[in-house]
Computed example of a mutant assay.
Amino acid sequence: MTMFSAINNPREIRRQLGLNQNEFWSRVGVTQSGGSRYESGRNMPKPVRELVRLVHVEQIDLAKINREDMAVIGYLKDTHPDLFLSLRKAMKAGTVDQVQGEKA
C-alpha cells in the first residue's frame, strides 16, 4: 500500500484486528463517533488515512517513534543508501533481531 492510498473499508480492517470502534479509532486520535462516520462511508482526510495505515495495517507503534528516530532514518537513507537497504533487508530476514538479541 502506498502513502495516502485509499483505505476503502476501515470497518473490515478493524474487524480483522478484533477491535471495537473505540479501541481502533482512539489509537489514531479519532473519536468513536468520528470513526463510525468513516466506517459508514464519509471520506477520511489524508492524514487520518495515513495514520490508519501506519498503525493498523503496518502495525507501527507510534508511541515508540520520535522525531530524532525519523531524522536518523532520513539521514541514513540520504547519506548511506546501501547500508539502509542492507539493514532493511536484514531486518526483513530476521537477522537484525538475532544480532540484537545476541548483544543483550
Rank of each mutant, 00 (worst) to 15 (best):
N20Q: 10
L62K: 07
K64R: 14
I13A: 06
R53A: 15
L76E: 00
A71G: 01
D78I: 01
T2Y: 12
Q16E: 13
K46N: 11
Q59P: 04
E50M: 14
Q100I: 15
V48F: 05
M3Y: 14
S26D: 08
A63V: 07
F24D: 08
L87E: 00
E68Q: 11
P45F: 06
F24L: 07
L83M: 10
S36M: 13
G35H: 11
G94T: 06
G41P: 00
M70A: 04
S40R: 15
L83I: 14
D61Y: 05
R15A: 08
G35T: 10
L87N: 00
M70T: 10
V57W: 04
G34E: 03
P81W: 03
R67P: 00
V28S: 09
G41A: 00
Y75I: 02
A71H: 02
P47L: 04
A90K: 08
Y75D: 12
G35V: 04
V55D: 05
V99S: 02
A90D: 13
M70G: 07
I60K: 11
E39F: 01
P81A: 03
L54P: 09
A93H: 03
L54K: 13
T31I: 03
P45S: 12
V52D: 08
M91Q: 11
K77H: 09
N8D: 13
V96A: 00
E12T: 06
K89Y: 00
R42E: 14
E58M: 11
N22P: 04
L17M: 10
Q59N: 12
L76D: 00
L83H: 03
R88G: 04
E50L: 15
F4C: 10
D97K: 12
D69P: 08
M3T: 13
R14Q: 11
R88N: 06
L51M: 15
M70K: 04
N22M: 13
H80F: 06
T79W: 01
Q21S: 15
K103A: 14
S26T: 11
M1C: 08
D78E: 14
S5H: 12
V57T: 10
R37F: 04
T2P: 14
H80T: 07
D82G: 09
R15F: 06
N20M: 05
P47D: 15
E39H: 01
F24S: 08
